[in-house]
Design a protein around this nucleic acid. Structure first.
Lengths: 194, 194
DNA sequence: ACCATGCCCTAACGATCGTGAGGTAGGAGG
DNA sequence: CCTCCTACCTCACGATCGTTAGGGCATGGT
């Protein structure tokens, strides 16, 4: 068993696209199966349940975001660089796989049992990194004094919005988007000339 | 018939809450009926279909946003004031009815037939107001040169995010949120000191 | 040669979905 | 008194949902 479950990966990829386009609840197991040219019941040779598909998509997306944020925070000198690196990393993850990212952002509430609070906690921990960078930036006088929690929500919702509208064949490349968003975020926090 | 369909209004209010919490597709007509203490079939004395409920919520929300933006643009001297007024108006609408706003933002894709493209067009026209204010601000040198379409997407997704996390009993009042968001948005567009 | 495993099939289950048909109770207007 | 009208009821429909059961046919290791 060198190759690990290629069909299983295809299911996640196809399901991500359908979930992003129509939502988890409005996508049936038969829809996913049809996109793979197999019967609905054949899905269950690879998956235990429909929710398991959502879970593996969301779990993997969460891990990807977490690892990218780890790397971003690792090589950042000051809070400003750290926030810039976090923003850039987030944009890169989103644009690299907008389907998975979008599902992670919008469909996690359909998880049941332990999974929903578990993901909620990871989302909160992730947001705390942004709050932390913003709070530290204010503390050292690099950012103007504002509400770190509110500013973090502002930044993260703006970043997550990319997952909604981004298309790979769009006008702007991921790099351009990342550059612009870093500028917008840093601008929002450094100065207000009203 | 002086009073116009109070029961019909209750349906929209209750359905907005359920749609925001669980999504349109995951909310059954029986769920809405149960929240009103009536039978599912009794809903159809007031509504032609489940989608009609979504439509009236979304349509009314869209109208509310449009009217608020009209008023905001009416008494604005320069592009900077105009954008600030648009942001403030948007925050006010969202915080005044987060349920309806959230449904408008996230559930309109479940509309079928003519309604979906119609709402898409109105959403785009609304976003164009932000693009316009930003573009005009750049033209007069008030905003730094950036991509107006991208900046508008940045701003609007950040604003719409409020509908997701806002709670009436939360830490920050709508006014405070509006003030902070205006500052963040204007800061994002006016200066970048990297 | 044999058996396990991966991948898919058909058939069908009980539940739940949105919705229609037809009836009833109560209040308002002639 | 009669007749609407509103608001609700019960009952039931066909469709679709997620999922299970059980079987078939390859491939590849032993």
């Amino acid at each position: 068993m060198i190759e690990t479950r290629t069909r299983r990966r295809e299911i996640d990829a196809v399901a991500s696209g359908l979930f992003r386009a129509n939502g988890y609840a409005a996508t049936s197991v038969r829809d996913i199966a049809k996109a793979l040219d197999i019967q609905a019941a054949s899905m269950y040779a690879h998956v235990a349940s429909k929710e398991d598909v959502l879970w593996s998509i969301v779990d993997e997306a969460a891990t990807t975001f977490e690892r990218a944020a780890d790397a971003a925070e690792a090589d950042a000198a000051d809070p400003v660089d750290r926030l810039a690196a976090l923003v850039e990393a987030h944009v890169e993850v989103v644009t690299a796989d907008p389907e998975r990212s979008s599902v992670f952002v919008t469909e996690w509430r359909h998880l049941g049992g332990e999974r929903r609070p578990a993901i909620a906690a990871r989302r909160d921990a992730y947001e705390a990194r942004f709050r932390g960078a913003i709070g530290d930036g204010i503390a050292v006088g690099a950012f103007r004094p504002t509400d770190p929690a509110l500013a973090a929500a502002f930044v993260l919702t703006a970043l997550n919005g990319i997952a909604t509208w981004y298309r790979a064949d769009g006008r702007l490349s991921p790099d351009r988007i990342a550059d612009h968003y870093v500028e917008l975020v840093l601008g929002a926090l450094t100065e207000a000339t009203r």
